[in-house]
Design a protein around this nucleic acid. Structure first.
Lengths: 294, 294
DNA sequence: CTATTTGATTACTCATAAGCATCAATATAA
DNA sequence: TTATATTGATGCTTATGAGTAATCAAATAG
């Protein structure tokens, strides 16, 4: 064991008081204790350390070189400890710390930026890790506690996870700029029976894929799918160049300047929902604050 | 008062033990105390801080985010405190710290470098401040505690100061390279009755100046003094260019490559002594070690 | 189910920090 | 000089609270 194992913070606090005042009686008053106790605690500290901190010639108290050095160190150490306790409190209150986000790419169009802005207004000292992941990756990393919260296009979740619907979106058709169909002439999905389609890969999110296929089922035909991809930009590029049409969440049209046009499918019943998911037992206090903001 | 004023190092040590083992009973064993005391101390720490450090579900102990953070901080703080105590011990033993030297320029020729080399061998962690000062400046700054030790050419010292003779040196004549006098033809100072002399200024050190004048008194003449200066290089330059002869401590000839030659005055009784001086009540522990090396 | 293991709780003991009265040494005042 | 005041240290007592032993309640394992 180390020599300083019997030293307590009390010793340091008393030492600092005497080091400042260089006067045992006044230091004792300042500490709201009686002088003899102070004398003995300082003596005990010196004996434990094995060297004197003060030179006292019965009329004057002065710091030894070692005492002078320790005065600075002890003051800094106590201050740092105090700061650590305070920062711990912030962490406990979710006012500081780190939140690890997972999200499907489309959530970054509107939901995540808006959420982060609102959250930062109340909790400016929380930092974020943001990671674009598909639905299944997010579930895996939630269960392994790698991320604190996920934003997925799903409806059913494992029992360990809590969730909340954060955004319900219509679908939109994506067509080339020069396609004859317009919002005015569009009446029903059945008009697109002969078209080729570029859709999200089924593996990316089966529930999402099936929701899209429902649209075609309701229209009474199976689509001719030429390409499957997960990237919005890729879809738009392919549509732009005449490889086919596509169906995407309406919010996904934001932020792109490409040669495609959109027709929002407000007449069909299908909607796609973005849900926030998190572990019910996640103890990150910042997460509770985030969920409250949701 | 600060919230943490009732927290003691004991709390931190106990906390770290539990944080490491995540097990109260084993942590208690490791600390050589019984488990109930440990439980209470941790609880008390958490209550004082106002937030929990562990989440215990009657079967598992886990750190909260705040606890995880404090584990790192507390470990570092304890380590730093331990290091501070250790460094204080080094300071007390004179194994670390700082020594402020004053010295007359000539002491830097041989005495100071040799002393520092020997001292550094035993006390490599002591740092130095070196300042070239004349005798009186050194006494003043010793009395005002600005320097720890001085190296002067004096014999008498104020009562507050302790001293020790460190080097006794003969005098040497300084002559131009082409001067007719040589060590072989030199017999007595009386041969120099007609010469002009360049000497140290009396104000620089009266005892030293009078010692030099004694040499002339013994030779039976008062010298014709053309210049007075304190700088060795200035003296040598003046001698080299025929402005006169000089008398310097023999050790002062080291380290200069100039057009002058020296004749060591071994036959006269005068010697010049370099003394180390320090305050008797100087508490710098490194000083005691230095004096022991002297 | 029972046995085991976990941390928490309770009542008690004992170590010790703090307080009081006093002392010795020194400085200041008369 | 003597008297007085002020300093930190010391001896003794007290009270706080850390530590212990026994026990409990809850969860898990067999």
């Amino acid at each position: 064991m180390l020599m300083s194992n019997q030293i307590e913070l009390r010793h340091l606090r008393y030492f600092l008081a005497v080091a400042e005042t260089l006067h045992f009686r006044r230091a004792a008053e300042q500490l709201y204790i009686a002088q003899p106790g102070l004398s003995r605690q300082i003596k005990q500290l010196e004996e434990t350390l094995g060297y004197p901190l003060f030179s006292r010639n019965n009329r004057k108290v002065a710091l030894t070189p070692a005492g002078e050095y320790l005065q600075g160190e002890a003051a800094e150490i106590l201050q740092r400890l105090e700061a650590a306790f305070h920062h711990g409190k912030l962490l406990h209150e979710g006012m500081a710390g780190r939140l690890h986000f997972g999200y499907v790419g489309s959530a970054m169009q509107n939901v995540i930026p808006e959420l982060l802005l609102r959250f930062r207004a109340d909790f400016p000292n929380v930092r974020y890790d943001l990671e674009a992941l598909d639905n299944q990756q997010q579930l895996d990393r939630l269960l392994s506690r790698d991320i604190d919260i996920g934003f997925v296009r799903m409806e059913k979740f494992p029992p360990e996870l809590d969730h909340r619907r954060v955004f319900v979106d219509t679908f939109s058709l994506v067509l080339p700029q020069d396609h004859p169909l317009t919002p005015e002439t569009f009446t029903s999905m059945a008009q697109l029976k002969e078209e080729t389609f570029i859709l999200f890969a089924a593996g990316y999110s089966r529930p999402y894929f099936e929701r899209v296929m429902d649209i075609f089922d309701d229209a009474g035909f199976r689509p001719n799918i030429s390409h499957r991809t997960v990237h919005a930009t890729t879809i738009y590029r392919l549509v732009e160049n005449g490889f086919g049409l596509s169906i995407v969440p309406t919010s996904l049209q934001m932020g792109y300047q490409l040669g495609v046009k959109f027709i929002e499918l407000t007449t069909i019943p299908q909607r796609t929902t973005l849900s926030a998911v998190w572990r019910a037992d996640n103890e990150n206090p910042a997460l509770n604050n985030l969920i409250r903001v949701l």
